[in-house]
């Protein structure tokens, strides 16, 4: 089967620290792929390089047969993304967020409106479409971001910890939608999560990254067999060790903190 993402020898350092160190993997068209790893392993950094937000120091990336370095806009049209941190404009309504996204992706008005309605109904936000996003709950914002990421019919959907901080109901709900879309529209899904049951349940394939290096690749069953563990969580801990990751706080972490304090 065709590969839709191919990564070879990807490296990225921040101030001499190797955040992503010689990472190689590939994702098959149409699959749900989980990218797992402890805090600070390099998951988000890898996603940023795949999605043209960050330039790799070295390595090769092919996204939907395009090269992010030389054909950024073709790559950008190929994927939709839900970032780890919120990325909707709180001061706009749900509808405006969708509209502006659609316009920037040059979707014709008629298609845009129809697709917006379809997606907002799917994530059950159609009734709230004219409300300012700042009045939404965390789960509603997340659902809106997913709907927005799907508006332009992407081939690949990136989800960086889409369910972190959400209650089990909302999490199930979100995964139902994503699985449905994966089936119906053949969207390839690339996601990260710290919930191992989640990864075990939905992912066809997965890769585990630790300290910037891939430490395991395969199916959930394969990893469990290889590490002789009863669950993916146990396999994960065997692969990545027990110690908690001490990480230097980045400005964004301070902000996450402050955002929490100010409930923005």
């Amino acid at each position: 089967m065709g590969k839709i993402i191919e990564v070879k020898g990807l490296c990225k350092s921040f101030d001499g620290i190797k955040a992503v160190n010689d990472v190689s993997f590939s994702v098959t068209k149409g699959e749900i792929f989980a990218f797992l790893g402890p805090n600070g392993a390099g998951k988000s950094t890898t996603i940023k390089m795949l999605t043209t937000l960050l330039k790799p120091d070295s390595g090769k990336i092919v996204m939907n047969s395009f090269n992010p370095a030389s054909e950024p806009n073709l790559v950008r049209k190929s994927f939709g993304i839900v970032f780890q941190d919120p990325s909707i404009d709180d001061e706009l309504t749900a509808m405006e967020n969708m509209e502006y996204h659609g316009i920037m992706y040059s979707i014709q008005k008629k298609t845009r409106r129809a697709r917006t309605e379809e997606l907002l109904r799917m994530v059950e936000l159609w009734d709230r479409k004219d409300d300012l996003v700042k009045h939404f709950s965390g789960g509603m914002k997340r659902r809106l971001e997913i709907a927005r990421g799907l508006l332009h019919h992407p081939k690949i959907l990136f989800l960086d910890e889409p369910t972190t901080g959400l209650d089990p109901q909302t999490r199930n709900h979100i995964w139902e939608h994503i699985k449905k879309l994966n089936k119906k529209e053949r969207i390839t899904v690339f996601f990260t999560t710290h919930y191992m049951e989640e990864a075990e349940q939905v992912a066809n394939n997965l890769a585990v990254i630790d300290h910037g290096k891939i430490v395991a690749k395969g199916t959930a069953d394969g990893l469990k067999r290889k590490t002789k563990s009863g669950s993916l969580e146990k396999a994960f801990i065997k692969l990545t060790g027990r110690d908690i990751r001490a990480e230097e706080a980045k400005p964004i972490d301070n902000l996450r903190m402050r955002a929490r304090v100010w409930r923005r």
């Binding site: 806009n73 950008r76 993304i81 990325s87 404009d89 920037m104 927005r148």
Partner: peptide
């Protein structure tokens, strides 16, 4: 981020 990944 949303703006910077847009194909514009």
């Amino acid at each position: 981020k949303e703006i910077l990944v847009a194909p514009v």
